[in-house]
Structures are given as structure tokens and as C-alpha cells.
Design a protein around this nucleic acid. Structure first.
Lengths: 213, 213
DNA sequence: GACTCGATACCAACCGGTTGGTATGTAGCG
DNA sequence: CGCTACATACCAACCGGTTGGTATCGAGTC
């Protein structure tokens, strides 16, 4: 648990470079030389730390999982006592971090898995773990919110709703990229998050009305 | 309006090949030789019909727009008199076509735009047109459904809801690819479509209750 | 209807640059 | 000394793209 000071190893520099370069260009279009240039290291350093370009992608996906886990764990939305408020707070947080250029707020593993799912199982698995692990965190709050309200539905589960939130976010990123500008794209993504939040509010509000009746 | 018989030009064969190969491998990972091999033509034919690999991508995106437009125009969901039923029917249709392998039901332009948005404006624009044109069709039915019910909301628009449907679908494809198997992925995507459909039903149902009161 | 002519569609071989990856060397440190 | 952490130089394969050429066809000419 050292807190990386000024000195950063070539490995760390390469992983950081991978985050930004791959999110901007995609995995296949990013060459090993691109990564070395962005990280300010040589090819020798690259292949000293990673057996292959593929191995770096797997390491980057795992590192992404750790980095984002820490980011969301440290986020303020966990404070509310009502788990539903935590879920809605999570969405507010996701909406709030839609800032800067597109490669800065889009998802590394969502981008990579599209290029790797068919031809590179190891990368795909690392991406899947990152996405589904993250969804599992939200699932816990959703399940607790349902539990607390005694909600029973056969139509959907906490898991399917948690995965749906991730689908909305990933899809919002695609539309943002298609839109062209960072601001316009972020606004588009924010609107999708708003729709999602409204949906979840309605799901739980209707339940409370039903219980009240 | 000739209905392509057995004879297909190299151009058509290449565009068809691009649909399947790029959806399976991504744009950057697909070489010109890959496309030629899949289409059963030579490189000479490729560069006779397309000025560059990039030009083929643009043509493929445009062709995708035409192909999918025709598919959805011919779909049965346009029959209902109530525009809301057409919107819900559209979602049923999207859910129903989640079949076969992943490259068969996922979106070409959604895949390509992720790799092209930063480095290739022409491809990005062609993808954007395809996605937003499609959304505009759904927007029309949504707007009509709102209009018919005299719905007025400042929180969302027909356009934002239409774009949200596309975000959900695109995101569902990413989760499907991450999941690993075609069946599991399709099931995951279907659940997201279900959530989306439930959301839209609730949006309009609540409005009707409010109007009734 | 035989003949040319230019345009279109396509092909096989090839080119220079880039790719992921390797072989070898070396500076610093315990 | 031996080990880690890099750097330099290099390679074969592959990349997008070009070349020079051929096969086919419809329009025009006599």
C-alpha cells in the first residue's frame, strides 16, 4: 500500500499510458511503440514487464478493476442509511464524473472487450470480471433496498437491474463517442443516466405505493 | 430495384464480409486481406472499389444504415394504431432478433465508432448518422405517443428517450460480448431490453393515471 | 455483323513501412 | 558477484496500398 510518489516504475507508467491511449484509440490500433512512447519507456522495458501486448491488456484490465474499485469505494454516495439512496447516489456520482475529454470518462474494459471478445478470451475474461465485479457492488445495495421494502417480483432481479445500470452506462459512452464532441457526448450520456435514475425511482416508488395501499 | 441474384459484385461481397468480420474482430484488427479472403476477392478488387480501408469502413457504415433501415421498415411492429404500442413493439422486435452468434445480432456501427471516434472523423460521422437516424424513427413514435396523451414534461424529451433506447441496446451488446457465450449474452441483453420496456410502460402508465385523476 | 475503342471490373505480384517480439548488453544495487 | 531493471539493435511477418496487366462489355463506325 505504498502511495506512488514521484518515482513511478516503467510498469506503472505503461499501465497508466494504456488507460488513456487505449481508451482514445482502441486496443488493436494501439501499438506497443505507441504505449512505450506515451509512457516514456523503451520497448525493452515493455517486454521486461509484460510477456506480450496481450498480457499488458490483461494487466491493464485488472489494474482498471482495482483503480475504479478504489475510486467508487472512496466516493461519498455510500453514506446514506437507506440503500436505495445509495443506489441513486451512485448514479448521481456516475453522472458527475462525466467530465473532460471522452477518453477521460469512458470505460477501458468496455472499449477493450468489444475488440477482444471473439479473438482473445483472456482479455475478455479480465474485462468481464471488471464489469461484473462492479455490477455486483451495486447489486448488493439494490438487493438490500428491495429487501427492506419487502419487494418480491418475478419480473426482474437485483442482479439484472445492476447489470442494466452497466449496460446503460456502456451504451451512453458509445453514443457519446458517436456524437463527436466531448461536451455534447457527456450531455447525451447524462440524459441516459437521468432516464435510468428515473426508472429506478419509479420501480421503488410504485412498490411503496402498492405497500401503502 | 433489381433483386441481387446469384451474381454479386466484388463490392457487395466486400460490404457483406465487412459486416460479419468487423463485428467479430473489430475494425482495426481486421486487415484488408481478411476482408478479401472472407469475400473471396483479391486485393486488386478491393482497391478498385474502395480508395482505402477507411473508405470501405465509411461505405460499410452507410450500407449498414440502409440495410437496417430496410429491416426495421419491413418489421411488423408498425401496425398498431397507438404509437405507444409501436414503440413497445419495436422493443419486442429488438428482443426477438437477439439470436445466433454474437457477431450476428450486435451492431456494426456501434462497434466501429468506438475505434474510430478519436482518430477517424469520417468513419465516426457515418456511424453517428446510422445511430441517430435510427433513433429519429423511434423518436417520431414516442413524440406521437406523448402528443396523443397530452404529456408535457420538462424532465425529458422524445429525443432523449429515443437516444436512451439506443444506449441501452448498445450497452447490452457490450455486456453480451463480455459475458462470453452467445446464449448467455443474448439473455443478458434481453433482460436489459425488458428493463427498458418496463421503464417506458411506467412512464406512460403513470401519465395516464395522472390524467385520470 | 465484324471491328475498333474506351471504360469498367478484376487479378497476381510486389513495395516500403510498421508490427509484435527477441537477443544482447549494461548500469546500479545489495 | 548476481540479480533486477531497464536500453539498444535488430528481425521476420504482416500491414495498407500500388503496380502493370487482363477479361469483359456496350457504344460507335463502316
Amino acid at each position: 500500500m505504498t502511495q506512488a510518489p514521484a518515482k513511478q516504475s516503467a510498469r506503472e507508467k505503461l499501465l497508466d499510458a494504456a488507460f488513456s491511449v487505449i481508451r482514445a484509440q482502441g486496443y488493436s490500433a494501439t501499438s506497443v511503440d505507441d504505449l512505450c512512447r506515451a509512457a516514456g519507456v523503451t520497448k525493452g522495458a515493455f517486454f521486461h514487464h509484460f510477456a506480450s501486448k496481450e498480457a499488458l491488456a490483461v494487466a491493464a484490465a485488472n489494474h482498471w478493476n482495482e483503480t475504479t474499485s478504489a475510486l467508487f469505494a472512496a466516493a461519498p454516495y455510500h453514506a446514506p442509511e437507506d440503500p436505495l439512496d445509495r443506489v441513486l447516489g451512485y448514479l448521481d456520482f456516475r453522472r458527475a464524473i462525466l467530465q473532460g475529454d471522452l477518453p477521460e470518462f469512458t470505460c477501458l474494459v468496455g472499449t477493450m472487450v468489444q475488440e477482444a471478445y471473439g479473438s482473445n478470451p483472456e482479455i475478455r475474461d479480465a474485462c468481464r470480471v471488471s464489469i461484473f465485479d462492479h455490477a455486483a457492488h451495486i447489486e448488493r445495495d439494490i438487493a438490500e433496498a428491495m429487501d427492506r421494502r419487502g419487494m418480491t417480483t418475478t419480473e426482474w432481479t437485483a442482479r439484472s437491474l445492476a447489470l442494466h445500470t452497466q449496460a446503460v452506462l456502456q451504451g451512453a459512452f458509445i453514443l457519446a463517442k458517436a456524437e463527436g464532441t466531448a461536451e455534447g457526448g457527456a450531455a447525451l450520456a447524462a440524459q441516459s443516466v437521468d432516464h435510468l435514475k428515473r426508472y429506478i425511482e419509479m420501480l421503488f416508488t410504485l412498490e411503496e405505493r402498492a405497500n401503502a395501499a
